[in-house]
Amino acid sequence: MYNRVGRTLLVLSAVLALLLSVPATTASAETIHSGNSVCSMYVNSVGFGAYCSSGKAYMGDGAPPPTWRERLNGRPFVPCRDFEIPDGIRLPQAPEGKSWVLRITITDYDLDSYNGGPKAHLERAYMPVDQAERDQCPFPDYMEQFWWRFESSYPEPALQIMPTYTPRVNVPAYFTLTPDSSMVLKQTGDLSGYYDPTHNLTMRGMVVELKIDPGDGTAPFTCPTGVTPVDDPDGYDQTKDPYNQINPCKHIYKKSSASQPDAMYTVKLTITWDVAYWIGKGTGWKSIGQANVTAVQRLPVQEAQAIGG
């Protein structure tokens, strides 16, 4: 469906406003083991991420890696660490004199192993703490080697409307998101504690549904969606007229927006992100949860004219 001649990609990001939905409790996956790493992940309306404890990467050759006890060199192991509450998490007012933290604790670990041992796992808790309670989980520099984290936020949506920048009355208008605004891929890179080439942790956020309130008083409609192919980024076949397209995500405006504020309809979008993780060859992507982000589009609609105007 890709016509390379006379093609115009109409991205309306300049008139699209991103509005974070009301923060909701995080949807988190169970703790996973990825090689010698142990990771706890989260997803919410702002983004997604992972907090991990990790041993030194070991590829199975050369001398055995040092144990955690050897790496401590006589210093105490501090199994807990406090993080800021991830954006998008709603919590009540903390008690007077306290503030909320995300406390993650490495439990059931074995200091005489190079990766914490097979039973090591992470426990996470949202806790109100005062200074004395914060001091229970100090984070000396030497403990950095046992922890790593990554996180990513969703990109601002870039809405495409075809076949014209300004929809026409009684002519179908087709809605899609650009590929760059409908998927986020985040990989641990050299911070990963994998012990062979098939173990790694990668997280992916992908738009799976787009709900559109067209702003003209008609009912909202929902479009199952996904990342569009690179060679067909808007799902619109330029060789066919607007009445003979495959893309089902469309709306027909019955009157112009001339009577609306600023002569534009206010289009409301609800974008559903599904976040998944991958830990190695043959395991496939495993979903850990979904989150919604809302956005507003100001959209002019004109009386029917020749297509391409």
Results as ranks from 00 to 15, higher is better:
S152F: 01
A219V: 12
S287I: 05
G235W: 05
P79M: 04
I106H: 04
K186V: 07
D237P: 02
L201M: 11
M1L: 14
T283Y: 12
S181N: 00
P76L: 11
D112Y: 05
T176W: 04
L269D: 05
P172F: 01
Y195E: 10
A29E: 09
P65T: 07
G308V: 02
K254L: 15
T26G: 12
D274T: 15
S53Q: 10
A120Y: 00
D61Q: 15
Y126G: 03
G117L: 00
Y174H: 06
A120Q: 04
Y165L: 07
C80G: 11
G35V: 08
D216K: 04
T272N: 05
R7A: 15
I89A: 13
I279H: 10
I212P: 01
N36W: 11
S13I: 07
D141M: 03
S181D: 00
S28Y: 08
V301D: 03
V293Y: 03
M206E: 14
I104N: 08
D232N: 14
G282M: 08
A291V: 03
S152V: 02
T188S: 15
P95E: 08
Y236N: 12
S192T: 10
L102C: 06
T105L: 03
G47F: 01
Y109N: 00
Y114F: 07
C80W: 05
D241N: 15
A17F: 06
L210S: 05
S99G: 11
M162R: 10
P172D: 08
G193F: 00
Y194D: 13
A276F: 03
S53L: 06
D231I: 09
D82W: 04
Y42A: 13
V301Q: 02
Q160E: 09
E96F: 08
V227D: 03
G284S: 13
G74K: 03
A295W: 07
Q136K: 09
V230E: 14
Y2M: 10
S181T: 00
L19D: 13
D112E: 13
H199L: 04
C39W: 00
D141P: 02
Y114R: 01
N247A: 10
A29L: 07
Y51V: 12
V46Y: 12
G6Y: 02
Y165M: 10
V184E: 07
Y174E: 03
Y51P: 02
V230A: 14
T222N: 03
L185K: 11
T218L: 06
A27V: 14
P65M: 05
G235E: 08
W68V: 09
P300Y: 09
V301P: 03
T178K: 02
R4P: 14
L10Q: 10
P242S: 07
N3F: 09
P79E: 06
D231W: 07
Y142F: 02
T225L: 06
L72A: 09
G289I: 10
K98N: 11
E84N: 14
R69H: 12
P248F: 09
D130P: 00
I307W: 13
M127D: 10
A276K: 09
T26Y: 06
T178L: 01
N36L: 15
M203K: 01
R4C: 15
Y58H: 10
T26D: 14
G47T: 07
T67E: 08
P179S: 02
S54F: 06
S153H: 04
Q302G: 14
L91H: 05
S256R: 05
I279F: 11
Q290K: 15
N200H: 12
Y58R: 06
P23A: 05
G47I: 06
I161S: 01
K240D: 13
N44I: 02
V11Y: 09
K119H: 01
S257Y: 00
